[in-house]
Design a protein around this nucleic acid. Structure first.
Lengths: 195, 195
DNA sequence: CTTTTGTTTAACAATTTTGTCAAACTCAAG
DNA sequence: CTTGAGTTTGACAAAATTGTTAAACAAAAG
């Protein structure tokens, strides 16, 4: 079966990701995905066999993409401050494109009680935590549980993106105004983390 | 039609809220809700007419509950620092019970493009923002766009709760360990906000 | 040009989920 | 104890969603 590669398989998958991660349509049906992709719904079954299978694939790729991004940034051997600056830059850029990706991962995990338990992951994270502790000892950043530092960092980056629709209403801002606000945060987060 | 109040209506609604807000089962079916409540599924239709109607009601009550909580805290005339302390305490407590409530609101908004546009809301929020600016002028907190201050505050509180399942894996922590970590954040957030 | 093979489509079937209804039930009112 | 209104249940119907198949189609291979 030498595939002819019409790009349809990728198109469907990318459209699904766009609906899930960018638009936050977390329960899109196969019909909605097919419509958004401009293809016949049966092609979803032709290329992915079943809806669940497509979801699983998207879920796994989302998880992997997220982890790879984090790994690349975390494991690089830049100086600490620069590393964090890079992390903010990379993560914020990806999150602005796919604000709901983490959310999708979370809700899928809740839906089917997935447990990853990759030991390799914990090891990498621990190395990062160690590095943070080292910087705290040096006095670069305030002393605390390094997990808190990490949580703070990601909270400040991700939450305003996830809650954008609600915040726009509460703050009475339109899309452009809110985008500008988000743009400002890049510098602000860095300054909040490094007082 | 003098209702006999067997508590079933409330039971169904509360169970739905528990599934949505506490367990993050954002696409629970009426059957799943009925099972969790231990009642016949038809009662969902008897009391709420339709699934959509139940969702709408839960959505509206969730939104209202969230806004009322925020209003009560924000509009009280405590001294600023104490008000923030109270906000952290109240919001964190509610969020620990219903970590996915905001998420549910967001995804429902995305699902059906709801626009609230309550002018009254913007007014209250603006008053709060003014108060923050006033404190910045006094030097209590670092000068910045008060919206950033607000976003920071809520980010630090809410995000670690929403992403708990993922964080437990990444940090290699069990439920109890993570709960303890969250408990520590109450003080930590206050200190991060007021350097 | 014809064949072959992979792709796309539409019609259909199966499944899942939701909604309806009449009968059974429960409990307060008479 | 009977009545009656609200409540609960199970059987059934309707709708929505997903999955399957055969035929039409398109493009590369012969």
């Amino acid at each position: 079966m030498t595939t002819r590669d019409t790009g349809t398989e990728q198109l469907i998958k990318n459209t699904a990701k766009h609906l899930f991660f960018a638009e936050g349509k977390l329960h899109a049906t196969t019909q909605e995905i097919a419509d958004a992709a401009g293809v016949n719904r049966t092609l979803v079954n032709y290329y992915f066999r079943s809806r669940d299978s497509l979801f699983d694939q998207v879920f796994n790729e989302a998880q992997e993409a997220l982890l790879i991004t984090l790994d690349e940034v975390i494991e690089s051997d830049m100086p600490f401050k620069q590393k964090i600056e890079n992390l903010i830059s990379v993560f914020l850029k990806e999150s602005m494109q796919y604000p709901y990706r983490e959310l999708f991962i979370i809700t899928e995990m809740n839906r089917k009680d997935v447990i990853d338990s990759k030991k390799a992951r914990a090891k990498k994270v621990n190395a990062f935590l160690k590095q943070i502790e080292f910087e705290m000892d040096k006095g670069t950043i305030k002393k605390m549980n390094p997990r808190h530092f990490t949580l703070n960092l990601f909270s400040l980056m991700a939450y305003p993106l996830v809650t954008a629709p609600l915040n726009k209403i509460l703050f009475g801002m339109n899309d452009d105004e809110y985008s500008e606000l988000l743009e400002e945060r890049k510098k602000l987060i860095f300054e909040t983390i490094f007082p």
